[in-house]
């Protein structure tokens, strides 16, 4: 059951919900209407709150998030950021350093050395003993002499 409207209650309610009766609480609306009709001080309260309502009404409907995102995306595709051009350009083919050459040559040198050390034994094992090697030497000498 709504209590009898007083200026204090009226001021508090209008101070919360503004001057527009459609925003007033349902259970108080009729009593507030009656009070407003009969009390000049209530009309002053409504006038004061109404000016704030009018001011707040001037807020424009904001742009949708979708439109905002589209505009940002379009802008980013149309403008190239300055900081990118200020950054050093990465060379597509980086030049080789001395360290690169050394690390590439080391495995090759190791293979060559292993070849010098182990090649005679390997040939002997494959071709079947020192006689064969000796005849190969003779054959080579003949070729060189001819």
């Amino acid at each position: 059951m709504p209590q009898t409207m007083t200026l204090e209650t009226f001021t508090q309610l209008v101070g919360s919900y503004g001057a527009e009766p459609s925003r007033w609480p349902d259970e108080h609306r009729a009593a507030m209407h009656d009070f407003l009709q009969n009390q000049q001080s209530a009309q002053a309260v409504v006038g004061r709150e109404g000016s704030l309502d009018d001011w707040l009404d001037q807020r424009l409907e904001p742009a949708s998030d979708i439109l905002h995102a589209r505009l940002m995306a379009n802008m980013q595709s149309q403008l190239s950021p300055l900081e990118t051009s200020a950054e050093p350009q990465q060379s597509p083919a980086p030049s080789l350093t001395r360290r690169d050459y050394i690390s590439a040559a080391l495995p090759l040198a190791a293979c060559f050395l292993a070849g010098v050390i182990f090649a005679p034994d390997a040939l002997e094992l494959v071709l079947g003993g020192p006689d064969i090697l000796a005849s190969l030497d003779l054959f080579a000498d003949d070729l060189l002499l001819n």
Binding site: M72, Q76, Q78, L79, S80, P81, L82
Partner: peptide, 9 residues
């Protein structure tokens, strides 16, 4: 005009 996205934002 200089391409600043920050300015565009």
């Amino acid at each position: 005009g200089n391409g600043s996205q920050f300015a565009g934002h």
